[in-house]
């Protein structure tokens, strides 16, 4: 499996963390990333109201021809979005671990303000250790 990238979207739809992993991908600009994250936030909000039996959790997996988007929507409405190759079974447990890293290095860090961009060295290192090693 290949992990292409990770987004963390705050509850207002702002992109607070973005990182791409695999080499040789065409890179987006910071602005494009922000716009796409906002769009995904909107799509998620719509899908969460589409359920035939009342409210639903919203989109969890979006599959495209060449990649897959897995979304973890937490209780506090923070979204963790993982871009992986199509045949990937590990995305959900990985996202749980990302959530754990976020709780540790983000929320327990007094210099991080909730809902603001994550600029923490320890978060970077732990995400790198978690997702950077999955390139096989």
């Amino acid at each position: 499996m290949v992990v292409f990238g990770l987004w963390v979207i705050n509850k207002a739809g702002g992109l607070v963390y973005q990182r791409s992993f695999a080499d040789g991908l065409s890179q987006l600009t910071a602005n494009e990333n922000l716009v796409l994250a906002g769009t995904l936030h909107g799509i998620h909000a719509i899908t969460s109201r589409l359920g035939p039996t009342g409210s639903s959790s919203g989109a969890q997996v979006i599959e495209a021809e060449t990649f897959k988007i897995t979304i973890l929507h937490t209780l506090t409405s923070t979204k963790f979005v993982l871009f992986t190759s199509l045949h990937d079974v590990n995305a959900e447990p990985l996202l749980q671990k990302v959530y754990e890293v976020y709780a540790d290095a983000g929320m327990k860090n007094p210099f991080h303000a909730p809902e603001m961009p994550i600029r923490s060295e320890k978060f970077d290192t732990r995400i790198q250790a978690l997702l950077g090693s999955t390139q096989a």
């Binding site: 540790d104 290095a105 327990k108 860090n109 007094p110 210099f111 600029r119 923490s120 060295e121 320890k122 978060f123």
Partner: peptide, 14 residues
């Protein structure tokens, strides 16, 4: 263990 001190406060030790 979970604290990352920002660059502009480098001298700080919690």
């Amino acid at each position: 263990r979970y604290i990352s001190v920002p660059k502009d406060m480098e001298q700080l030790s919690c």
